[in-house]
Design a protein around this nucleic acid. Sequence first.
DNA 1: TATTGTTATACTCTATAACTATA
DNA 2: TATAGTTATAGAGTATAACAATA
Lengths: 151, 151
Amino acid sequence: MVDNVTPLDERLGYLLKTAYARLALRVDAALATLALTARQLALLSVIASDEALSQIEVSARLGVDRTSIVAMLDELERIGLVERRRDERDRRRNTLALTASGRVRVTAAEKARADVEADFLARLDEDSTRRLVAALQALAASSDRRDHARA
Amino acid sequence: MVDNVTPLDERLGYLLKTAYARLALRVDAALATLALTARQLALLSVIASDEALSQIEVSARLGVDRTSIVAMLDELERIGLVERRRDERDRRRNTLALTASGRVRVTAAEKARADVEADFLARLDEDSTRRLVAALQALAASSDRRDHARA
DNA sequence: TATTGTTATACTCTATAACTATA
DNA sequence: TATAGTTATAGAGTATAACAATA
């Protein structure tokens, strides 16, 4: 009826969205054992990677709005994985740190996440996997510049 | 502090999500001129690719719940791009079809979407692009089997 | 005046349950 | 009984505006 309509499974957008959705389902299933969501693990991992980040710094790295971070931290603090500490050099900021329990949980969860990812990629050979990651990184990097220029 | 924490930009999940989000932003920006969202275009394209699909068939192809399709069709019908027709052979079903205006709009929107995608991929050479798409298709295919087995 | 964290609010997308009409 | 479409509703996730405390 209408020509020039690319089938869904040849569209980059559809493929990226579908691949992400499926990986996310598996990661969430694996993390359920550890009572964590993929979203929470991402936040915990950013905190783990660089202690003393503020809430705004963390939100920028995750690409999540600072107002969304508030509720996530409330929950992670409630279950004892994270601590907010007033930054004494700038009392507007909170410095985020993992608790001992948080460190244990992140280590286990990171292993679970990496296992799921490896299993998800099992269909690809090593070279294809390396090139896939490199291509995605290139797209993210090139997009970064534009997005910042436009923002 | 915690070792074995993979940086975000080496995680497949983060890369897929980020790449998709950025492409989606650009596609939506390009489609705004045509008063369409990427979501609407995906629905229109499925209808265009195979006339006489029912709402449930369309929802399955898109991976969108049938209840969500209802409101989307209401809007597309309201702006005159789509028609619901009772299937006379099974009066429970609606057969979906583009209007003449819908066909014109889809053709223009598909061109805009393809242009954005090509620009988004400009950083990659042809071989890398082909391999990226192939890898994503392989991941989608392998995941399909598992998801169906589990569902 | 500007910034950090916070609350309130709203909007989109998604998922579930229950209804209707048809089979 | 089961299925297609529909409605109502609730839950995530996200974004905006406005506020208090601090710079």
